[in-house]
Simulated assay, not measured.
Amino acid sequence: MKRHLIILKVFILLVFLSIPATETAAKKENSKPKGLEVPSSVVNISKENTFANPTPDLPRLQPSNFAKELLESSKIKIENPKLIRMLNESAATKSPFSFGARATIFLGEWPLNYKSEETAPNWQYQKVNTNFYDNRGGTGNYQIHYVQEAQKIIKGGLTAKVVQAEDVQKMMQQKAYEKVRLPLAFETAVGGGTKHHQVYNIPPTRTGYLYAYAPAVHEKGSLTFGEVYLVMKGSKYRIIVKNVTSQEIGAWIPIQDHLSFSFEARQ
């Protein structure tokens, strides 16, 4: 009898211990970014694209221990990967002879961080191709499919002029990717001769138009700038940010290796 009670208690304990773990796992699963819901008219052409687009540049630079200490000392959040890289490369030499030394070094004015407020897709951002066939003299359906007639370069960009635009673009691209989970690039291309197998029927007495569009996301948010100073006092270092400003900024960022199709049959 005692043995059965011990087994029962162990079983109940294991059940109770498993509940928090299950709930935690569920919470983690629900917290994972699901990405953007892609409509059925949008297809991935990464395998068919005759132009080999480079992998989107999404910097995930990890700060060194020294850089991490500096970043944590700043009252303003710093996310600029270029500035973080510079701090990494500066890897401090904390000399034992530096006690009593004082210095303030101006590192320049930087875009420090970007806060995303809205990320919205435009599935027909830019038309890249039109396939046409005249079946008005036909007696049955004519089938057409997408064939890219000429190479097309699709460019995005910021909606306002800012200093160090490339740094701003990288921060905005990273934040947008975290939301949509699709390959984003400020410049991408569709190669001539790219095809897709989806067939569209043009009835007799009709003309058929198959349009292909490059999709993009419109990213909008707030950008923070500031003057960055490295302050040394003895063997201790810290970052001070002065003259902090912010501005609203937007950007169009094309979705790489994706096309949105639209078909029309006209009389």
Score class of each variant (00 low, 15 high):
residue 138 G to E: 07
residue 177 Y to G: 01
residue 121 P to A: 04
residue 151 Q to A: 13
residue 161 K to S: 15
residue 196 H to V: 04
residue 133 Y to T: 11
residue 129 N to V: 11
residue 136 R to C: 03
residue 207 T to F: 04
residue 199 V to E: 13
residue 123 W to G: 05
residue 152 K to L: 06
residue 155 K to E: 13
residue 188 T to H: 04
residue 193 G to T: 11
residue 207 T to R: 15
residue 134 D to T: 06
residue 199 V to T: 05
residue 158 L to H: 04
residue 200 Y to M: 00
residue 205 T to Y: 13
residue 185 A to N: 15
residue 165 A to C: 04
residue 146 Y to N: 08
residue 121 P to Q: 00
residue 197 H to V: 14
residue 203 P to W: 02
residue 145 H to E: 11
residue 143 Q to W: 04
residue 154 I to H: 07
residue 186 F to R: 01
residue 186 F to A: 05
residue 179 K to P: 01
residue 132 F to H: 11
residue 196 H to L: 10
residue 139 T to Y: 06
residue 127 K to N: 14
residue 188 T to C: 03
residue 155 K to L: 05
residue 173 Q to W: 01
residue 166 E to L: 03
residue 159 T to S: 14
residue 191 G to K: 09
residue 125 Y to E: 04
residue 126 Q to E: 15
residue 173 Q to D: 02
residue 125 Y to K: 01
residue 144 I to K: 02
residue 192 G to H: 10
residue 204 P to W: 05
residue 128 V to D: 03
residue 168 V to I: 05
residue 204 P to R: 08
residue 138 G to I: 02
residue 129 N to F: 09
residue 148 Q to N: 15
residue 122 N to P: 00
residue 147 V to A: 12
residue 179 K to C: 00
residue 178 E to S: 14
residue 174 Q to K: 14
residue 182 L to P: 10
residue 162 V to T: 08
residue 176 A to L: 01
residue 135 N to V: 04
residue 193 G to K: 12
residue 171 M to P: 08
residue 203 P to A: 10
residue 191 G to M: 08
residue 186 F to L: 07
residue 151 Q to Y: 10
residue 162 V to C: 03
residue 181 R to A: 14
residue 198 Q to C: 00
residue 151 Q to L: 09
residue 183 P to D: 08
residue 126 Q to M: 13
residue 200 Y to Q: 01
residue 137 G to C: 00
residue 178 E to Y: 08
residue 145 H to A: 11
residue 157 G to K: 06
residue 152 K to Q: 15
residue 160 A to L: 03
residue 174 Q to N: 14
residue 164 Q to E: 09
residue 207 T to P: 01
residue 186 F to E: 05
residue 158 L to Y: 07
